Amino acid sequence: MLEVSAASIAEIAGSEKEFHQRCVDDAEGWLLRPLVDRCRSAGIVLGPTQCYAFTTLPLFGGEYKVDNIWICAWKEWLSFTATIYSQTKDLPDGSPVAIKFVD
Rank of each mutant, 00 (worst) to 15 (best):
E11T: 05
E11V: 08
E11R: 13
E11W: 06
I12R: 14
G14W: 00
G14C: 01
S15V: 00
E16S: 08
K17M: 01
F19M: 06
H20Q: 11
Q21P: 02
Q21W: 04
C23A: 07
V24W: 04
D25M: 02
D26G: 03
E28A: 10
E28Y: 13
W30K: 11
L31N: 13
L32E: 09
P34H: 05
R38L: 09
A42Q: 12
G43F: 05
G47P: 09
G47D: 13
P48D: 11
T49M: 13
T49H: 15
Q50T: 01
A53H: 15
A53F: 06
T55V: 10
T56E: 11
P58I: 00
L59D: 02
F60N: 04
E63K: 15
V66T: 06
D67I: 01
I71V: 13
I71Q: 06
A73G: 13
A73T: 12
W74D: 12
K75C: 13
E76G: 15
W77T: 11
T81K: 08
A82V: 02
A82R: 13
T83M: 11
I84F: 09
Y85K: 09
Y85F: 14
S86K: 09
Q87G: 06
Q87W: 06
Q87A: 12
Q87R: 15
L91G: 03
P92I: 00
D93R: 12
S95I: 00
S95W: 03
A98F: 07
I99M: 03
I99H: 03
V102G: 01
D103H: 09
D103L: 05
